[in-house]
Amino acid sequence: MISKDIALGFFFLFQTGFGALGNSFLLGFYAITFFTGPRLKPIDLLLIHLAFVNDLVLLSKGIPHTMSTLGLTNFLDNAGCKLVFYFHRVARDLSLCITCLLSGFQAMTLSPRNSCWAKLKARDSKCIVSLFLLCWVFHLLKNVPVLLMMKGSMRNKNITKEQDYIYCTVAFPPLLRNAINMLIITLPDVFCVGVMMGTSGYLVFVLYRHQKRVQYIHGNNLTPSASPETRATQTVLLLVILFVSFYSLNSILVLCIQYRQSSWLVHISAFLAACFPASSSFVLIVSDSRVNKNFLVLWEKMMT
C-alpha cells in the first residue's frame, strides 16, 4: 500500500509538472509566433510574462514541497531556503501584479474613445514595458525581509518562536518589526486585489451593456458569435476570478498556520498557492483561437 506521504508527493509532482507543461507550452507558442507569425499584440506581452512568472511560482514551490513530502526534509540549508522562498514570493507577487495589469489593460481597451484612457491606448506597448520593470524592481525590494527571516529546516530542535514549513522555517522578528513587515507585504496585495475587483466589475458592466445592444440590433432569436474583444474580456474575467478565489483561500490558511502548527495546513496552502499558476495556462490555451488554428494547420500537415 502506498503511504500518504508518497501519494501526496506524487500529487504535488503531478500538479507542478502539469502546470509547468502548460506554461512552457504558452511560452514556446508565443516565441514561435514572435519569430514566424504576425506581430504580437500588447496583451500578448502580459500573457507571456504571466506564463513565465507562473512557471517560477510552480517550480520554486512545487519541487521543494514534493521532495519534502517524499521524506527529504533537510535538503536545503539556510541560503537555499532564503533563495527558494524569496524567488517564490517575488514570482507570486508578480503573478498578482500582472493579473492586475491584465484586467486594467482590458478595461482600458474597452473604454470609450473619448475617455481619459484614450491617450494611453496609442502607446500601450511602451507603458506595459515600463510597468514590467517597475513591478520587478518593486517586488524584488519588497521581499527583502524574506531573506532575513527564512532559515533551514530545524524540525528536530525545540523551537517556539519559529514557524515550521516542513523543509524550511521562518524566524519571526520582534513584534513591531514583524507588524511593519506584514504591513509592507499586505498593502500592495490588497491594492492589486481591489483594482482587479473594480476593473472586473467594470468589465462585467461593459459585457452586459454590449449584450443588450447586440440583442436589440439582431433580435432575441439570434445568438451572434462573440467578438474577439468579448472573448478576451471573458478570459480575463475568468483569470481574475480564479486568482482572487485561490488567493483569498490561501491567505486565510497562511493566517491559520501562524497560530496553529499543522503539516496538513501547510500542504493545503501549498496546493492552493499552485492552483492558479497550474490552471491559468490552460484557460489561455483553450480561449486563444490562434492556438487552435495552428494546431489544425499542424494536424493537416501531419495527415498529408
Rank of each mutant, 00 (worst) to 15 (best):
residue 22 G to V: 09
residue 104 G to Y: 01
residue 186 T to A: 07
residue 70 L to A: 07
residue 127 C to I: 15
residue 54 N to G: 08
residue 132 F to E: 08
residue 52 F to Y: 12
residue 269 S to K: 00
residue 22 G to A: 14
residue 66 T to V: 10
residue 150 M to V: 04
residue 290 R to I: 10
residue 127 C to T: 13
residue 207 L to V: 04
residue 244 V to R: 05
residue 221 N to G: 15
residue 22 G to M: 09
residue 24 S to H: 12
residue 171 A to D: 11
residue 203 L to N: 01
residue 220 N to P: 03
residue 96 L to M: 13
residue 92 R to Y: 07
residue 13 L to W: 10
residue 18 F to I: 13
residue 180 I to S: 12
residue 123 R to Q: 15
residue 286 V to Q: 14
residue 158 N to Y: 07
residue 128 I to W: 11
residue 199 T to Y: 03
residue 9 G to D: 12
residue 275 C to G: 04
residue 136 W to E: 04
residue 218 H to K: 08
residue 71 G to I: 11
residue 296 L to C: 14
residue 96 L to D: 01
residue 256 C to S: 10
residue 83 L to W: 05
residue 186 T to D: 07
residue 147 L to W: 00
residue 254 V to K: 02
residue 61 K to G: 00
residue 236 V to P: 01
residue 257 I to Q: 02
residue 83 L to I: 12
residue 221 N to L: 14
residue 194 G to V: 03
residue 270 A to S: 07
residue 118 A to T: 13
residue 299 W to I: 12
residue 233 T to C: 12
residue 127 C to A: 15
residue 273 A to Q: 02
residue 257 I to G: 01
residue 181 N to Q: 12
residue 30 Y to T: 02
residue 136 W to M: 09
residue 96 L to W: 02
residue 44 D to M: 10
residue 197 M to Y: 05
residue 34 F to D: 11
residue 73 T to E: 10
residue 223 T to M: 08
residue 121 K to N: 14
residue 127 C to H: 15
residue 16 T to V: 09
residue 188 P to Q: 03
residue 293 K to R: 13
residue 63 I to R: 05
residue 83 L to Y: 02
residue 78 N to F: 04
residue 38 P to A: 11
residue 250 N to R: 11
residue 99 T to M: 04
residue 235 T to M: 09
residue 57 V to P: 00
residue 261 Q to M: 10
residue 56 L to C: 14
